[in-house]
Measured scan of single mutants.
Amino acid sequence: MDVFMKGLSKAKEGVVAAAEKTKQGVAEAAGKTKEGVLYVGSKTKEGVVHGVATVAEKTKEQVTNVGGAVVTGVTAVAQKTVEGAGSIAAATGFVKKDQLGKNEEGAPQEGILEDMPVDPDNEAYEMPSEEGYQDYEPEA
């Protein structure tokens, strides 16, 4: 019985440690998101679009440190934060509304985080759909 109880105690310690790591990862992701939003706020009209992409990228980098179902929630929060940063930029006159959601080359930025393969159960990952990809044929 002692062996059984000791095993359960060790398992509990492992769960607590994993929860603490997840909590730490979420806190880091939130900190990076805040950094990115402050970065966007300090940019001029020309830099705002690039700044919004930076927020998304920093958040995406930190999301990889967070495991399990938390990833889905962090990704949703990050996307809403990026959308909010863009709205703030438009409201303050840093950028025109028609410039939001495009990178410096004018290509749409939507789907940055949505296409990231995420499995809350950590069982399997699927690649994003290939609808947006084109076949590449090298020139002879």
Rank of each mutant, 00 (worst) to 15 (best):
Glu61Tyr: 02
Gly36Trp: 12
Glu20Ile: 11
Gln134Ser: 07
Gly84His: 07
Ala17Asn: 08
Thr33Ile: 03
Lys6Asn: 07
Ala29Lys: 05
Gly36Glu: 03
Lys10His: 04
Gly14Thr: 15
Leu113Gly: 13
Thr22Cys: 06
Ile88Glu: 02
Gly47Lys: 07
Val95Asp: 05
Lys60Ser: 04
Ser42Glu: 12
Thr72Tyr: 03
Leu38Ser: 03
Gly68Leu: 13
Lys80Ala: 12
Leu100Thr: 06
Val26Thr: 01
His50Ile: 04
Ser87Gly: 15
Gly14Ser: 14
Thr59Arg: 01
Ala107Ser: 09
Gln79Cys: 08
Asn65Arg: 11
Tyr39Ile: 08
Val63Glu: 01
Met127His: 06
Glu114Ile: 12
Ser9Lys: 13
Leu113Cys: 03
Thr92Tyr: 06
Lys80Gln: 06
Thr22Met: 11
Thr33Arg: 01
Leu8Gln: 00
Ser129His: 07
Thr22Pro: 00
Pro128His: 04
Leu100Ala: 13
Ala140Leu: 10
Ser87Ile: 15
Val3Arg: 15
Asp121Ala: 07
Thr44Ala: 10
Gln79Glu: 05
Lys45Met: 15
Val95Arg: 09
Lys43Met: 15
Ala29Tyr: 12
Thr59Ile: 06
Gly25His: 15
Ala27Lys: 07
Phe4Thr: 00
Gly68Glu: 12
Asp2Ile: 02
Gln109Met: 04
Ile88His: 02
Ser42Pro: 01
Thr33Tyr: 02
Gly73Ile: 07
Lys21Gln: 05
Glu139Gly: 08
Pro117Tyr: 04
Glu126Val: 09
His50Arg: 12
Pro117Gly: 10
Leu8Pro: 00
Tyr39Thr: 05
Asp98Ser: 11
Gln99Trp: 13
Gly73Phe: 11
Gly68Val: 10
Leu38Pro: 00
Val118His: 10
Gln62Gly: 04
Gln62Met: 05
Gly101Val: 09
Ser129Met: 12
Val77Arg: 03
Gly7Arg: 15
Gly132Leu: 10
Ala56Ser: 14
Asp119Gly: 10
Glu28Met: 09
Val3Asn: 03
Glu110Val: 06
Tyr136Asn: 04
Thr75Asp: 04
Glu28His: 05
Gly25Leu: 13
Gly67Cys: 12
Glu126Asn: 13
Thr64Ser: 06
Val66Tyr: 12
Val71Asp: 01
Tyr125Gly: 11
Glu126Gln: 02
Thr92Leu: 11
Gly36Tyr: 09
Tyr136Ala: 06
Gly14Val: 13
Val3Ile: 03
Gln134Trp: 10
Val71Arg: 07
Thr72Glu: 15
Ala90Trp: 13
Gly68Lys: 11
Glu139Met: 06
Glu126Trp: 04
Leu38Ala: 04
Leu113Pro: 10
Tyr39Gly: 02
Pro120Met: 08
Val15Leu: 08
Ala85Lys: 02
Ala27Gln: 14
Ala17Lys: 09
Asp98Arg: 07
Val15Asp: 00
Thr72Ala: 13
Gly106Glu: 07
Ala29Pro: 00
Val52Trp: 15
Ala30Ser: 04
Val55Cys: 06
Thr81Ala: 14
Lys45Phe: 12
Thr44Gly: 04
Glu105Gln: 14
